[in-house]
Design a protein around this nucleic acid. Structure first.
Length: 510
RNA sequence: GGUCCCUUCGUCUAGCGGUCUAGGACGACGGCCUCUCACGCCGUAAACACGGGUUCGAGUCCCGUAGGGAUCACCA
């Protein structure tokens, strides 16, 4: 409904062509027509990348903040590289991050289909139109020949532009399936009034006639985006700034096709610690890998939104807060380095802010993977898990860390040699024996923090030892090491039977 | 190499000509708290890339230089 309006209203505001060789986008659309439609258009050639997630997030927030429409489109025209697994990975990643789409795979809207491979007839129509208007032509040059000429041009110091050999060709070679090239306007200049970078001017002389349809009949990126964004009524194209250089040629296509230009906003890249574009070299780049490493989606989204966007001094944002406060004006135009330390800090924050029961549910699969707990979450185990979460979350930066730190709650620990030597001394043996006696006297149902505290105070009273002198040997005895939650919590979670078992075992060895 | 983008503490950033002897956060370091680890709290070190302009006045505007990044495919 609202969609069809766009193409009929916008022509009034069209600012294009007019004078030859002059292309420019509007800086701002009047507010009365802010019927915002944005899209995230990944190509399914791998997993959903961290950088992609941030691009998606900014689009999603922009849409949600403005009450607009967020569209997910799959750019899979490169059939040799696109896979269904990748599509699944993208959908999964989007869902995990909580970014829902209004139109896209599984959500039909008035502008579908949302997979480029299902839109072939649309591209063909548009190519035909350009062919007829003379803005496109067939090119019979072979990839090999092109490559040679490109190299020759480079060697002579000329820019490696296509030489228009096939423009107006009279005797096309037989048996060669041509590609279709867009005839670029190389006069004048194109200015992009970028929402993030500001005014960017390109000389059209740098442009050449790029291929818009391959010999296999599939459109190439620069053409397909224009056709899709136009026919889908996209009003704002927010994408990585690696696309900024493509923008002038795309603008010429909008013009040649008689479509209105959207507004563009080019987000800067995410860099690795060496300031090079983030890649596998810098560690995990797939969003789902972060899930596996024990990061919460809340933390990922929170961290990513702060990479290039700010709201005063605020660091922690719930999704609601992001939506409420997001604005393109506060998006930085400079690239940002991905900082795992800060991610850890934010993850730690959300582990502590999220309800423990929720964390317990997320922890379970981690434990199962480490063979520490069965995958089924019986009520009892979930309750116990919640206690563990409460006891461990202050010191856990990831769920994996939490699981590792909690090992001794599930299996009998290995004794750390140095810790044993230092704390499990003959002098402490009578103290532990006394403690065991008192612990035995506690009824099973009362083996809790309050009772344990009483017992320990009694031991300290009788032995004249300070808390540290008592607690640490007990800690080593039951956990095998020197690090654990408070000793009362630790014993309570372990339970009476297991605690006594471990203490007795230690005493025998002293 | 051509073109385009970017440049405030190690990192993310605040700053939109005077309130900046530059603020916050992560990290680092020191201290306090303490049954260990951690959390928390307090504190310390740490930046306007450089050079010219414009202006009464520049981190903030302009131009150069340097450095970094992106892009120049029948990939997206």
């Amino acid at each position: 409904m609202k969609v069809t309006l766009i193409s009929s209203v916008i022509p009034l505001l069209r600012l294009r062509g007019g004078q030859r060789g002059r292309y420019e986008t509007l800086f701002r659309r009047p507010s009365y027509m802010q019927n915002i439609r944005v899209r995230f258009a990944p190509s399914p050639t791998g997993f959903l990348h961290i950088g992609g997630v941030r691009t998606a997030l900014f689009n999603w927030l922009f849409a949600r903040h403005n009450g607009g429409t967020f569209i997910l489109r799959i750019e899979d025209t490169d059939q040799t590289r696109s896979t269904d697994e990748s599509i699944q990975a993208i959908l999964q990643g989007m869902e995990w991050c909580g970014m829902d789409w209004d139109e896209g795979p599984g959500k039909d809207g008035a502008h579908g289909p949302y997979r480029q491979t299902e839109r072939l007839s649309i591209y063909r129509e548009h190519v035909e139109k350009l062919l007829q208007s003379g803005r496109a032509y067939k090119c019979y040059c072979t990839p090999g020949g092109l490559e040679e000429r490109r190299k020759a041009a480079m060697a002579e110091g000329r820019p490696p532009k296509y030489d228009r050999k096939c423009l107006g060709i009279e005797n096309p070679p037989e048996g060669v399936t041509p590609v279709i090239r867009f005839r670029a306007d190389t006069e004048g200049q194109t200015v992009v009034n970028d929402l993030i970078k500001g005014k960017v001017t390109f000389e059209n002389s740098v442009l050449d006639d790029l291929i818009i349809m391959r010999s296999d009949g599939w459109p190439t990126y620069n053409f397909a985006v224009v056709v899709d964004d136009s026919t889908m009524g996209i009003t704002h194209v927010l994408r990585g700034d690696d696309h900024l250089n493509n923008t002038p040629r795309q603008m010429q296509m909008y013009d040649a096709l008689g479509y209105d230009m959207p507004q563009f906003g080019h987000l800067s890249m995410i860099l690795g610690s060496d300031k090079a574009r983030l890649s596998k070299r810098h560690g995990a780049t797939s969003i789902m890998q972060y899930k596996e490493m024990g990061y919460l989606s809340e933390a990922m989204v929170n961290y990513l939104v702060r990479l290039g966007w700010s709201f005063g001094d605020q660091e922690i944002f719930s999704v609601e807060e992001m939506i409420k406060n997001f604005s393109l004006e506060s998006v930085s135009s400079a690239a940002a380095v991905f900082n795992p330390d800060k991610l850890n800090w934010i993850n730690h924050h959300w582990i502590n802010a999220k309800p423990p029961r929720e964390i317990a549910k997320l922890l379970l699969p981690m434990l199962a993977q480490m063979d520490l707990a069965p995958a089924e979450d019986g009520l009892w185990s979930l309750e116990r898990l919640e206690k563990i979460v409460l006891a461990q979350r202050e010191k856990s930066r990831t769920l994996v860390e939490m699981a590792e730190l909690s090992r001794y709650f599930f299996v009998e620990p290995e004794m750390e040699q140095k810790a044993a030597e230092k704390f499990l001394t003959p002098e402490i043996k009578p103290v532990l024996e006394r403690l065991i006696g008192l612990l035995e006297a506690i009824p099973d149902s009362g083996f809790n923090h309050a009772e344990l505290e009483k017992v320990f105070h009694l031991v300290m009273e009788k032995t004249g030892l300070k808390m540290g002198k008592v607690a640490q040997p007990v800690r080593v005895a039951v956990t095998g090491g020197t690090v654990s939650p408070g000793i009362y919590e630790t014993l309570e979670i372990l339970g009476k039977e297991e605690s006594l078992k471990r203490l007795r075992k230690v005493i025998e060895k002293i």
